[in-house]
Design a protein around this nucleic acid. Sequence first.
RNA 1: GCCGAAAUGGUGGAAUGGUAGACACGAGGGACUUAAAAUCCCUUGGGCAAUUACGCCUGUGUGGGUUCGAGUCCCACUUUCGGUACCA
Length: 946
Amino acid sequence: MEYNFRDIEKKWQQRWIDNKTYQVTEDQHKKKFYVLNMFPYPSGAGLHVGHPLGYIATDIYARFKRMQGFNVLNPMGYDAYGLPAEQYAIQTGQHPEITTVQNISRYREQLDKIGFCFDWNREVRTCDPVYYHWTQWAFQRMFNSYYDNKQQKALPIQSLIDYLAANGSKGLDVAQTEEINITADEWNAMDEKQQSDVLMNYRIAFLGETMVNWCPKLGTVLANDEVVDGVSVRGGYPVVQQKMRQWCLRVSAYSQRLLDGLETIQWSDSIKETQRNWIGRSEGTEVEFQVADSDVHFTIFTTRADTMFGVTFMVLAPESELVDVVTTEAQKAEVQAYLDQVKKRTERERMIDKKVTGVFTGSYAINPFTGEKNPIWVSDYVLAGYGTGAIMAVPAHDSRDYAFARHFNLPIIPLVEGCDVSEESYDAKEGIVCNSPRPGVTPYIDFSLNGLTIKEAIAATKKYVREHNIGRVKVNYRLRDAIFSRQRYWGEPFPVYYKNGMPMMIPEECLPIELPEVDKFLPTETGEPPLGNATQWAWDESNRKIVDNSLIDNKTVFPIELYTMPGFAGSSAYYLRYMDPHNNKELVSSDAVGYWQNVDLYVGGTEHATGHLIYSRFWNKFLFDLGISKTEEPFKKLINQGMIQGRSNFVYRIKDTNTFVSLGLSKQYDVTPIHVDVNIVSNDILDVEAFKAWRPEFNNAEFILEDGKYICGWAIEKMSKSMFNVVNPDNIVEKFGADTLRMYEMFLGPVEQSKPWDTNGIDGCHRFLKKLWGFFFDREGNMHLEDKEPTKDELRSIHKLIKKVTEDIENFSYNTSIAAFMICLNELSQLKSKNRKVMEDFVKLLAPFTPHLSEELYETLGHSTSVCDAEWPEFNEEYLKEDSVKMMISFNGKARFPMEFPADADNATIETAVMNNPQTAKYLEGWTVAKVIIVPKKIVNIVLKK
RNA sequence: GCCGAAAUGGUGGAAUGGUAGACACGAGGGACUUAAAAUCCCUUGGGCAAUUACGCCUGUGUGGGUUCGAGUCCCACUUUCGGUACCA
């Protein structure tokens, strides 16, 4: 009887649904295990063969853990808000929700064919009001919180209000946009609006002024890569740098905790390193400089406090408020011209073309260490958003300052003994300090760094600065607050309305605020975001409901926020929602989160290293501060699956003809390679008839063959429609079955590695499953396993497999695990094994990989329960013990011949046996034995000397 | 530029510092078939050999080093792929 995978897979998929096999509940008697895939954005193109890779890996792990007795949560859902559906809506007028629902059902259909053990009862969709209710709720909580630096924790904003009323801002150590100094009296004298503005400085979700690429014509903010040469990529309209009031999240408040948390989680070192760099902690010193002939002081930040004696000029960021203050009358026009020029360049352009530009303000700053007057310049290589927006330039030891000094002919003073700064700056933090102060110069202060190492000099300077009150030690982070507003339609609406210029939260009990209908998905003619097109988008404060815009009177009815939230809003806490997805009272019940805690294993791509995986950690920490989340980190272990690349095929058309020449002969002609659909190519041999039928322009194509075949060229590229290399999993399931697909995806290589998809190799996995089928059934379809005690050889073979597979699954090394299955089956085949007990273990071990087939065979063996609930076979060391061991005898590391010893032979016995072996004598001629190295069970190496 | 990952047959890939190339694909040869498919068996890194030789040499991007022994560890370099962008 044939292995009929179609019937088997259909049967078991139905049975899993009927028996609710994969529905899980919180079961206090069992240990929990939470596995999670990064949920997909359901795109219109559907799944290709690369998408399920991570899901299959997770599924195998989930099934494995379940068989080990864990209560496994393995949910799936959709990150359903996104640009493609909105773009499609703009073009066609079709509501993005319709597109999204269609795409989701297509995804679901494809996923269902592969036989995952997802608990679909817990599905979430970010665009579902039942779900985004809690996204809005979390946002409101962030609005109503501030971050206390002393406690390192988010606290309710009310306690800050109380503090301000009692003490003013004195003694406040909190995360803030800028330092505000007010007294309690001043605070208490403020009206509501003024107080609201002050509080914005502290809230975790706050309205902030941020620089954006604003395109007035498109009425939208553009990302840096949507702007080229000062105009929008789409449409080519002018784009300007503009400050805009937008919602932001104070992610930066959590910088240190985000950094510290990395030490506690099992993520790859590379992704942790990426996050460390992104957070960008740098310990440095702030030093105050005075502007010459003026009362103005300003502060700079440096990590190289040791270079105080090498400062030759100062630089301000163009956006710095100091620019206006220090610019002299004579320089005003020139500085203004420079600022105008800078404004036109986008951030990206400033970065890509690193032309040195700048302008002198006319003022000088007094170096507190040397007393020298250093000219103050303005240049766009200094960023307003980092440090203090002002630097002291030490051209000898900073490459950017060096380039600037060279360009504007400013002095360069080397400060490290023996360093050469004639060609480039010496940036290394190694060496002995000199010229600090310079010999022959009368010291301005009683302080010298000469002779110290750089590290010592940094410490000494910090100490001096602190003691003499000219600055302080400061830790800076590169991590910026997240901009949380989008000028888009297809996203979560903000539960916020505006009353007299103040943002007000719509009461928590009235959530969710549902996305309103609009007739157009584009910005309005007046440049408002798409929600400006909504007519039912006003908040009636007294009746607590959404009403028609025409009722807005700004007394009881107010306009609602027109921005929507960005993509990461909905994806930041979804792992918590899976624990309790139907709860309409709270994000997640304390019981549910108390049981499931956090994600034990998270699987997804590296592309989220600095986006989702930072925001999500931030969001979780915030919820942790609120007492909602029970753990400081959301994802204990992270596996980054690699990308599946496409393998494209090419045909070679001879120029100006419709004749195609086979790969081997193509060098003899002047040819153009053309992508050909990989689905009409098999083992690089083109199906010529299918090719003619593929496209009309090829139906009279002619071919120059080799050996009667047309051989195609190939290349590894991204899997994409335009390369005709997309392989749909549906086709693979149809032809080989889901179990073969699952197995082959894992067999391709390590999960974490990127690798190309090549359908050709799939036969090997399919043959293996057919062969396994043949172990159970004869041609007539009768089960022909024998019920007897396994032999020693059979036990050794199966226990070797148990050990290997158990270890490999724990290590995510599925490809080697599958090889072990193949080896074991071959061994059993050699042994002519027909043992029922052995095959039962085999089927159980295989169940995570090929659940349908395993279920079928497990049932054949007389079990009425699902193999999912079978116990994972236990490994017994005893069966692997051998009577003898084979060891390689080598001379000076070169392997020569094998010898067999009793398993319990000690080193002395082995050495004697080797030395007395006649074969050994052959290699000893002309040498003396220096020493003998014995590696147990592996090798005996005899070191020889002349 | 900086950070990270990687480089092994025709291909995907195996190898706790211990016989490199497991396992699979492909290819070549054979068996069974009228034939094909399916299935099974043998060979398959390269080179030299071809039964006094189922042996020898060489081989994991390049060049050095450590070691009795290196694909694996160290140093320098080349290339490829990711990420990032003037963070003082």
